[in-house]
Write a protein that binds this DNA or RNA. Structure first.
Length: 117
DNA sequence: CGGGTGACAACGT
DNA sequence: AACGTTGCCACCC
């Protein structure tokens, strides 16, 4: 049997976490990393998604930057593709970002305050 | 070995 | 909202 490198294991954990994101919702790279057991490895998530390509098996479009920000340059083909897929799942979008739902109390996250959403 | 880079995040100004 | 800095880690010169 071939040796499964730690890199491959981590990639598998990340893809699993991404597949677990429910339709109509989205998570940040950092949150995906945390759920994959790799806290602080947000960049690794991006790297794995990039090399994983666009598989129907992997809902990469449900992974956004912090606060729903789309990681791709606004207007780029990839950004539009991601926004369109999110919108099709019922996620509200505006500009180059997905709108983060606020809780019932109307409280916004600390980051949302920083980003003036 | 050292430095730059990147589908990032958090904090400060 | 816009930058600059730092932390993070895999890769590539």
């Amino acid at each position: 049997m071939e040796n499964v490198s730690t890199a491959e294991k981590r990639a598998a954990a990340i893809r699993k976490a991404v597949r677990a994101i429910k339709r109509g919702s989205f998570l940040s790279y950092g949150e995906v990393a945390r759920r994959a057991g790799l806290p602080g490895r947000a960049r690794l998530v991006g790297q794995v998604l990039r090399e994983s390509g666009d598989s129907p098996n992997l809902p990469w479009h449900r992974v956004t930057g912090a606060g729903g920000r789309i990681a791709f340059p606004a207007g780029s083909a990839s950004a539009r593709r991601q926004l369109q897929r999110l919108a099709r799942e019922g996620v509200e979008t505006r500009g180059n970002r997905a709108i983060v739902k606020r809780n019932a109390a109307g409280a916004r996250s600390l980051d949302a305050l920083l980003w003036k959403l």
